[in-house]
Simulated scan of single mutants.
Amino acid sequence: MGSLSYFLGLQAQFTATGLFLNQAKYATDILEAAGMLDCAPMPTPLPLQLDRVPHQDELFTNPKYFRSLAGKLQYLTLTRPDIQFAVNLVCQKMHEPTLSDFHLMKRILRYLKGTLEMGLTLESNTDTQLLCFLTALADKVAASGFYVVVPDYFYGDPYDPSHQDRPVPVWIKDHSPDKGFEDTKPVLEAIKNKGITAIGAAGMCWGGKVVVELSKEELIQAAVLLHPTYVTVDDIKDVKVPIAILGAENDFLTPPALVKQFEEILASKPEVGSYVKIFPNVSHGWTTRYDINDPEAVKAAEEAHKEMLDWFVTCVQ
Results as ranks from 00 to 15, higher is better:
Tyr6Thr: 10
Gly9Val: 06
Leu10Glu: 02
Leu10Ser: 05
Gln13Asp: 12
Gln13Arg: 14
Ala16Phe: 08
Gly18Asn: 02
Thr28Glu: 15
Leu31Gln: 01
Gly35Glu: 11
Leu37Asn: 07
Leu37Lys: 12
Cys39His: 05
Cys39Trp: 13
Met42Asn: 12
Pro43Lys: 11
Pro47Ser: 02
Leu50Ile: 07
Leu50Glu: 01
Asp57Leu: 02
Phe60Pro: 01
Thr61Cys: 02
Asn62Leu: 02
Tyr65Thr: 01
Arg67Glu: 12
Arg67Asp: 09
Arg67Gln: 10
Leu69His: 04
Ala70Gln: 01
Lys72Asn: 09
Leu76Lys: 12
Thr79Pro: 00
Pro81Met: 10
Asn88Arg: 15
Leu89His: 11
Lys93Leu: 05
Glu96Trp: 00
Asp101Gln: 04
His103Asn: 12
Ile108Phe: 03
Tyr111Gly: 08
Leu112Pro: 04
Leu112Asn: 07
Lys113Ala: 13
Thr115Leu: 09
Glu117Tyr: 13
Thr121Glu: 12
Thr121Pro: 01
Leu122Met: 13
Ser124Gly: 08
Leu131Ile: 09
Cys132Ser: 15
Ala136Leu: 12
Ala136Val: 02
Leu137Trp: 11
Leu137Glu: 09
Val141Glu: 03
Val149Cys: 14
Val150Leu: 15
Tyr153Asp: 06
Phe154His: 14
Gly156Leu: 14
Pro161Gln: 06
His163Leu: 15
His163Phe: 05
Arg166Trp: 00
Val170Tyr: 13
Val170Arg: 10
Val170Ser: 14
Lys173Thr: 13
Asp178Asn: 07
Asp183Tyr: 00
Pro186Gly: 01
Leu188Tyr: 03
Glu189Phe: 05
Ala190Asn: 10
Ile191Gly: 03
Asn193Gln: 13
Ala198Phe: 09
Gly208Met: 04
Val210Pro: 04
Val210Lys: 06
Leu214Val: 06
Glu217Val: 14
Ile220His: 01
Val224Pro: 02
His227Lys: 00
His227Val: 02
Pro228Trp: 09
Tyr230Val: 05
Thr232Asn: 06
Asp235Lys: 10
Asp235Ile: 10
Lys240Cys: 01
Ile245Val: 13
Ile245Trp: 03
Leu246Asp: 04
Leu246Ser: 08
Thr254Asn: 07
Pro255Ile: 12
Pro256Phe: 00
Leu258Glu: 15
Leu258Phe: 01
Leu258Tyr: 00
Glu263Tyr: 05
Ile265Leu: 10
Ser268Arg: 14
Val272Pro: 04
Gly273Met: 08
Tyr275Ala: 11
Val276Met: 06
Phe279Leu: 08
Phe279Cys: 04
Phe279Arg: 01
Asn281Pro: 06
Ser283Thr: 15
Ser283Arg: 15
His284Leu: 09
His284Cys: 03
Gly285Glu: 08
Ile292Ala: 11
Ile292Phe: 11
Asp294His: 08
Asp294Met: 11
Asp294Pro: 00
Ala297Gln: 12
Ala301Asn: 12
Glu303Lys: 14
Lys306Ser: 10
Glu307Ile: 06
Leu309Asp: 05
Trp311Asp: 07
Trp311Gln: 09
Trp311Tyr: 03
Val313Met: 11
Thr314Trp: 03
Gln317Phe: 07
